[in-house]
Design a binder for these strands. Sequence first.
DNA 1: CTGAAAGCGCTTACAG
DNA 2: CTGAAAGCGCTTACAG
Lengths: 351, 351
Amino acid sequence: MARPGRTRPATLRMIAESAGVDVSTVSRVLNGSPEEAARAASRETVASIRAWAARLDYRPNPHAKSLRTARSNLIGVLVPRLSDIVLAMIYEGIEDAAARHGWATFVMNSYDRPAEQRARAELALSRRVDGLVIGDAHSDAAFVDEMAARKVPFVLVSRHAGDHPSVTCDGYKGGRLVAEHFLQLGHQHVGVIAGESFASTGLDRTAGFVDRYRQAGVDVPAVHSAFDTAGGHEAAERLLRRHPRPTAIFAVNDFAAIGALGAVRDVGLRPGEDVAVAGFNDTPLASELPLPLTSVRSPTHEMGARALELLVSVMEGRKPVSECLDPELVVRASTLLGRPRGYGRLTERGL
Amino acid sequence: MARPGRTRPATLRMIAESAGVDVSTVSRVLNGSPEEAARAASRETVASIRAWAARLDYRPNPHAKSLRTARSNLIGVLVPRLSDIVLAMIYEGIEDAAARHGWATFVMNSYDRPAEQRARAELALSRRVDGLVIGDAHSDAAFVDEMAARKVPFVLVSRHAGDHPSVTCDGYKGGRLVAEHFLQLGHQHVGVIAGESFASTGLDRTAGFVDRYRQAGVDVPAVHSAFDTAGGHEAAERLLRRHPRPTAIFAVNDFAAIGALGAVRDVGLRPGEDVAVAGFNDTPLASELPLPLTSVRSPTHEMGARALELLVSVMEGRKPVSECLDPELVVRASTLLGRPRGYGRLTERGL
DNA sequence: CTGAAAGCGCTTACAG
DNA sequence: CTGAAAGCGCTTACAG
């Protein structure tokens, strides 16, 4: 395509001709560290080259560089869906950290469909990414095992699978925190909205919650669901039809929790009073809802940034060490309405 | 960086040697349309080349191609913030359409800070993007005017500025729809949470609302705010301190509206009953909130897709025609509680 | 300290 | 129908 009016970007050759040196000298001066530059040319030559580069507004052509070095400085990021704010925040963390390393990233939605995951990964690979951050791993690990077999450098984020390197938030612990909270409030009949059955996040959070209740001698019904409000709504309806009816529901993410609040309201009960509801992730909305939502805070931005750092160590051939970050329970009205004494005690104890 | 174990990708040369033809023939066969391929080689040669390409799992090296053709097939996308679901949905639309054209996109957050906008745009340009979709234009148009002066192919999305090509949703009309709705419900004392003063979205929506009320002989106070829940909360507090107190509030986006609902509750009033609240964008949450939110639906995904198509025409040097898509009012409980008759009438009339 | 050369993997006039 | 050549803008041994 013609770019009418756009002047051609400066090249090393143009600088070399202006400064009266060879293009290889220019490359060494402009590319390397100050020491390398000093080794490559005299002080005046270095100064002259730098001056010309600035004057001509030189920017290295990334395609030429990548072609020559077989590195793209490009990272591909796979997520279930970017319009899920949790993934968007994780991606922001990835993007921030990548920028610090001089890498560009590009994201792709897989909608959690295996065919899309593969297609998107192939696209990324055909773009010659140096590595992949995978945020949509399924717990069967089929797709990520393939990537590993092909020696593609990658890390998982948010969800873990197999024993591939990953940065996650400790969902099991988070689930236990919620169970602990519900038990302290005296709830004996509870339910879990467990999310998709292929996502380690939902599975871990559910397991932590269920295990803690089992320790207290209570069996907990768990129903799978989509991760969005509609999924939470539908799952909550099913839980609320049970006998005895649960007095508290743990949804493994905030959107499902919001759907659950809607379902509680729709069956004529008072959310937060008749039925306590807790979510997970502590998205920015949780605190601002008309009924503020109790939620387990997960460090989304940090998770993304740490995942990128982990990818660095994978790409450098170091032995990667997976990380599992700590969650934190944030108690709000959705589990406390009508129980002001409980509220006081809990906040004092730092929950 | 060494990629231990990763086999080198196939090249045109490898195919050429396997098939016993010149690399240029392979290029013509693999690149062009079927007709061009037919013109480039005999049927058997074409078949043989295709077979070898498949066998060797050939994927063109994008860096070599871009270096040679001076096109990157890369589109840069600038947004205020990707963790704003509205922008995330617009981006999904852009991404979808770009994929159909065989383009890759990468997004960057500017956080609506001019310095970041420039820095991110420079980054994109240094990556040699073929074009830019700008979702964070400020109404002063300073930054986008610069881009235009530099002949960078770009389009605006979501917000317009100057007379640069853009795809937006008709905010003025949307604001009028809400005003109409409030007037029908009998609200004489209303207020607007107007969003950031630099964003055409908030300005247009506010103007439409204010103008319609002015026609009815009512002056409407408008306060600027951040676009998030906290901003809406704070702005609503200011509106609620006025005398007479507004009985209805229009927030120019759903998150601000949710913040407003929280503020109404915090001053001891009943959201939706004592104070009606309407938002804008009809994000997926709106319908699932414990108090379902009246909101103006904007076609976010479509806006993104149309913006990408518009960018195509800009890049092809055609005269771009800006688009302004139609909004639609979706009435829910947040403006109807305690007014069931109004509800019936309004839904019958298709509002 | 500096240069000359080769080559990364493509595309595309030019020639036959 | 097919080939040979040039060149996109870099980097990096190799030489001096």
